[in-house]
Write a protein that binds this DNA or RNA. Structure first.
Length: 261
DNA sequence: ATTGAGACCTGTCGGC
DNA sequence: TGCCGACAGGTCTCAA
């Protein structure tokens, strides 16, 4: 959704000016960040996992990650406020402002042809909505994994771009316990069990619904199935269980112990 | 090679 | 009201 909203004002537009209002986010901005952007045209704005990628006319690519608290907004004038760390003045007339209170976000520049070797991108698993991601791919990636399903799905090498919320949601739809060993969705030789089919389908469903919801104002009030609903009633038909919260890998997991096995 | 714990930051919320 | 701990949609590094 972020890519989609920025595309009209950034794609085929030039950076007229770039304000960098502090020396770093989670990591320092790259050398000569401003100089390497100003004057460049954004040839394409794409996404890989949770990274937003702007392909530049210079042969470099601008990588952007929102971290936990990052966001972009589009303004007509740049009245920068607290935590507005980067301001892009585009030739489209739009001013794109990156705001990030916790500064877990990242911005970096890399030669476009080197992109496949970029450390954060190199080992990423398949995009969950692509045809390459299916029960077979998921089972292969989980084969032999002693860790839990919850932790496995958060591992960006297994599937790229799932976050803490959607992992809980997908496991609930698939009726699989977050504590269950990841390897149990595959046979010893790495072939998909029925649970792997359910889980890969649930992941696609959750993301598709999220996209629909973002695009469709009517759906927007729809609440999560389990995330942030500790103590509330499970919505699965004829379940009636109570949503529980527990910590896995230092992050909250929400699930229904009655219908998730 | 995997896996878990801790680190990085600031803001918000609930309890006392 | 003020203070304090717990927690927040992510990723990296380090050590076992």
């Amino acid at each position: 959704m972020v890519r989609r909203s920025l595309d009209p004002v950034m794609s085929l537009a030039r950076f007229d000016d770039v304000e960098v209002r502090r020396p770093d986010l989670r990591v320092p901005f790259p050398k000569r960040f401003r100089a390497r952007l100003v004057g460049q045209t954004v040839m394409a704005l794409t996404r890989r996992a949770k990274y937003l990628l702007a392909t530049l006319s210079s042969g470099e690519t601008l990588l952007m990650h929102l971290g936990m608290s990052g966001s972009f907004r589009i303004d007509r004038q740049s009245d920068a406020g607290p935590h507005d760390h980067v301001v892009f003045h585009m030739s489209s007339g739009a001013i794109v402002i990156f705001n990030d209170p916790r500064r877990f976000g990242v911005m970096d520049l890399v030669a476009t042809e080197q992109l496949p070797t970029y450390p954060a991108l190199r080992l990423l698993g398949p995009e969950p909505l692509s045809p390459e991601f299916n029960a077979a791919a998921l089972a292969r990636a989980c084969r032999g994994k002693k860790t839990s399903l919850k932790i496995a799905l958060l591992d960006q090498r297994v599937v790229a771009g799932l976050g803490n919320i959607y992992v809980s949601e997908a496991l609930h739809i698939a009726r699989l316990s977050p504590q269950r060993r990841a390897s149990t969705i595959a046979t010893p030789s790495g072939l998909p069990r029925e649970s792997a089919h359910r889980l890969s389908a649930a992941i696609k469903q959750v993301l598709t619904e999220a996209i629909d919801r973002a695009a469709n104002a009517a759906y927007r009030s729809a609440r999560f199935r389990v995330y942030d609903r500790e103590g509330e009633r499970c919505r699965t038909l004829r379940c009636g269980g109570t949503i529980k919260r527990r910590t896995q890998g230092g992050r909250s997991t929400f699930y229904c112990p009655d219908c998730q096995r």
